[in-house]
Design a protein around this nucleic acid. Structure first.
Lengths: 336, 336
DNA sequence: AATTGTAAGCGCTTACAATT
DNA sequence: AATTGTAAGCGCTTACAATT
């Protein structure tokens, strides 16, 4: 069952039928209707692979993310899909599981499928070499959220230093005299940047910054929970704790509560990401909010532009979103 | 840059080069090495589309889910990817956003890309007609989680009636004298089944079942929050509440707490799904646990089997997982 | 017996010529 | 002037013949 069958059944040539499926204005309305009717009658389904082979456009975008368990990335994927769908692109989702070797394999596969473009949240620990094959093959791409050292292309992310500064200032304004920055994968650019911003802001305010507390962790609530448990054994906690993510903060709050401390007064806790659940947690979690949806949509749009205008689009565009702070009970605020 | 270029550069024919990329045993080791070296030197990337067109196998699986915001589905996607990857399949993820028309369009697109198989979590409200095109086109498929009335193919899900019965019995055993079933989309098979099981178990125990409380909601924490707020105005709450999902339970617990009630003693609350966060919530949420990972992996395996043996595999296989109950603080248990 | 080469074809698109 | 048809080609695979 091919286009030729449909054309024959409708009494036209293959090329005319092809034109119909491309919705070309060059074919008469009656002809078009006849071809479409024949297709429906025969149960014909257009073959995009064949069309893609011939036109050299797959109408397909590869999206690389490190994991779906993190709601931040789940929201990102959804936003990208919604932005790309109306333009006729299908997204090939590839999960790198935060492993550079897997990421390499996955990029290779996506290139073999001849994606028209690539949206990439680099796995932790990936360097410039991720982009080698992609650039050699001249596939339009934009990086999201995380940076890669030495990569000169498009990047869409948020101002991590500013987010961390907001966090520190908020805790200071709520009367905290000692601060800690809690969790996050130490090898990431994001953690280094936020940590730096936080420490600088804390010092600028003349506060005591507790280094022993400021260790890296995985980005999960159980990591946050375990880490707090361990650290509570080495003395009294700081008065203010900024966590690298909401997930970590959830676990941390739980551990503080289990230890008999009241979050929001004994210890003030701040998250990062502002997940949907931050609002409904008990206590509700103050959090630095960055919109993964907005970042996803923006990256998708930049990519489409690059695909449409491979030459003319400027090189190395950077879009940075500014985070905002959502004050809630975990910092002592009482409006949810 | 095609296989022909690589072959020429290596000094062999196209067919030999092709055999190399298929890892055929028919080609000499030295030849193979030479071809591979030439490919690497030229920066050649295999074209799967062309191979797929010729072999009529795309090594691609379509995965339809209603949304990624729900961590249950996010985990499902990840499990499917991990199961399929090693077999050389790439997943085409399509988000139906719980809308049947979108689902229809998305199935069409996936068929146009000639996926080798389809894994489907049907959107709420979708009937047999989702499968029309898929069956006419004879594409192997398996349904996940939700059922579709009149669909006779493979289905992988969990025993909703049993899960709800467990929930009711657990609340009864913890001394609840009045029960309600809270939330969930009313049009779904899952809600009807769980609701039925819950009511029957409550009645069998001679308990008062509060119908006014048992309204449907969206599956979000804010829906749970709002619904509880509204309902608290019409009188004292039941002693035990089983929620249709953890997300709903999170919101419901928050609303109960805001109203000055203690979850775990005044009102006992039970969730459904056992998300990662259920454990770290305050109070920790008791929940009916169903493993979306296991369901995803199982469905993926059934599908691969159907793809490999289109004829011989039995028709209409059903795999049902039995849920378990995780007792936590929200029901008055004190072991986390 | 082991390995390699020829040529046709998978299902489309499209430049160009041909028809009404 | 508007519409339709012919034929080549996108980058692979593979049956079969040919070579060593």
């Amino acid at each position: 069952m091919t286009l030729a069958d449909v054309a024959r059944h409708a009494g036209f040539s293959r090329s005319t039928a092809s034109l119909v499926f491309q919705d070309s204005p060059m074919v008469a309305a009656t002809t078009k209707a006849a071809v479409l009717a024949a297709a429906k009658e025969l149960g014909y389904v257009y073959d995009r692979r064949a069309a893609a082979l011939r036109t050299r456009k797959s109408h397909t975008i590869g999206l690389l993310i490190p994991g779906l368990a993190n709601p931040f990335f789940a929201a990102l994927v959804q936003a990208v899909e919604e932005e790309l769908g109306p333009s006729g692109f299908t997204v090939l989702l590839a999960n790198t599981l935060e492993r550079p070797e897997r990421q390499k394999a996955v990029v290779e596969t996506l290139l073999e499928y001849r994606v028209d473009g690539l949206l990439i949240v680099p796995a932790i620990g990936s360097g410039r070499e991720v982009l080698d094959a992609i650039e050699r093959f001249a596939v339009p791409h934009v990086l999201l959220t995380r940076r890669v050292v030495g990569a000169g292309g498009d990047w869409v992310g948020s101002d991590d230093r500013r987010g961390a500064t907001l966090a520190a200032e908020h805790l200071v304004n709520h009367g905290c005299r000692s601060l800690a920055y809690f969790g996050g994968p130490t090898e990431t650019y994001a953690r280094a940047t936020r940590y730096g911003g936080f420490v600088d802001a804390a010092r600028a305010a003349g506060l005591r910054f507790v280094e022993e507390w400021s260790r890296g962790t995985e980005t999960t609530s159980s990591a946050g929970y375990e880490a707090v448990r361990t650290l509570l054994q080495s003395g009294p906690p700081p008065e203010g704790v900024a966590c690298h993510s909401d997930a970590i903060a959830f676990g941390a709050m739980r551990a503080l509560r289990d230890a008999g401390l009241t979050v929001g007064s004994d210890v003030r806790v701040l998250g990062y990401d502002d997940l949907e659940h931050a609002r409904s947690w008990s206590p509700s979690l103050s959090s630095v909010s960055v919109s993964s949806e907005e970042m996803g949509r923006t990256a998708a749009r930049l990519l489409l532009e690059r695909i449409d205008h491979p030459r003319t689009s400027a090189s190395g565009r950077t879009v940075v979103f500014t985070p905002t702070l959502q004050a809630r009970e975990s910092c002592g605020s009482h409006d949810t």
